[in-house]
């Protein structure tokens, strides 16, 4: 019994770590610029495939695989800003929220399809994965899960330091909290938006490598984590980073538990019920400040 409980716990923590990484990328973009990036899933997938190409096709070391994932994710984020977001920001502010969703949906489809055309639809093995199991008494810890949790913890620490301690991070938070005031202090908000999308893109890239190392590489790879990340963002309150991380771990553990108790197919629906319950109780999420957005 205990070992089953433990393995559910390990599975929950691992997926929680993955979701947290996906959620932070989404939440960061939403919090600072009011943009829901529907192309986040495709950026995740892009990262996974970039690492695959770097290590398998080009035969580069593991480190270069990670670098390629970060680089391509960051590039996708930057291009998204330059080609789409910058132009939509010039239009009417009131329609930005929905327009940018629709536009990124289009970009997401196009990107996913480009990957499909380039690599084909058959699943590929992510080379950046480790085999083996660490046995600790009754505990069976696959090395892959340990690697994922470690990578995510490191990434979270990096993001926390970046946002909390650096001048750039402070400018990002200032823009999220009061855009006009940030501008008065000399912050060029357009540059902040660009930085945020690049940052979120590189997070998506790493997340893609991690997700594909658990399963396999396939073009729709990012869709499932993104949808769950959305749910976690909503439960936490969009734009709240610590809340999003907490929600990611909490809901992932819940999902793992329900999948064990009631069967795999009830995992996602149960998350949905949690979301609906939370939203009826608190329409802007558990930790969300009651935003008054154009009301």
């Amino acid at each position: 019994m205990l070992d089953i409980l433990m393995s559910v716990l390990v599975a929950g923590l691992t997926t929680g770590a993955l979701y947290a990484l996906a959620t932070v990328g989404l939440s960061l973009v939403w919090g600072s610029m009011g943009m829901l990036n529907m192309a986040h899933a495709a950026m995740l997938t892009l990262g996974g495939y970039a690492a695959f190409t770097a290590t398998t096709t080009l035969g580069l070391p593991v480190f270069a695989g990670f670098a390629a994932a970060i680089l391509f994710g960051a590039m996708a984020g930057g291009l998204l800003y330059v080609l789409i977001v910058r132009n939509l920001l010039k239009n009417d502010k009131a329609t930005f929220e929905s327009n940018v969703m629709i536009a990124t949906v289009g970009i997401g489809i196009a990107l996913e399809n480009t990957i499909l055309l380039t690599y084909g639809g058959q699943p590929l093995k992510q080379p950046l994965s480790v085999d083996g199991i660490l046995k600790l008494g009754p505990l069976n810890l696959p090395y892959q899960n340990i690697v994922i949790i470690l990578v995510v913890v490191v990434m979270m620490a990096v993001i926390a330091l970046l946002l909390g301690k650096t001048r750039m991070g402070r400018a990002i938070r200032a823009t999220a909290q009061n855009r006009d005031a940030a501008q008065l202090m000399g912050v060029a908000v357009n540059r902040v938006y660009f930085q945020v999308l690049v940052l979120s893109g590189s997070l998506a890239g790493i997340c893609g490598v991690m997700v594909s190392s658990m399963t396999q590489l396939s073009p729709p790879l990012g869709n499932d984590p993104m949808l769950k990340a959305f749910i976690m963002c909503v439960v936490a309150g969009l734009g709240n980073l610590p809340g999003a991380v907490a929600a990611a771990f909490g809901l992932a553990l819940l999902e793992a538990f329900i999948q064990y108790v009631a069967g795999a197919r009830w995992g996602f629906p149960s998350l949905l019920f949690v979301v609906i319950a939370v939203l009826i109780w608190r329409p802007s999420g558990l930790f969300g400040r009651t935003q008054i957005r154009r009301m």
Partner: peptide, 22 residues
């Protein structure tokens, strides 16, 4: 500005540091 327009979730020090952004 009118109504202060502070960065509500930042500390006083961080607000001041934002003033010295440039």
């Amino acid at each position: 500005p009118q109504g202060d327009m502070l960065f509500p979730e930042m500390s006083v020090l961080e607000n001041l540091l934002m003033g010295a952004y440039l």
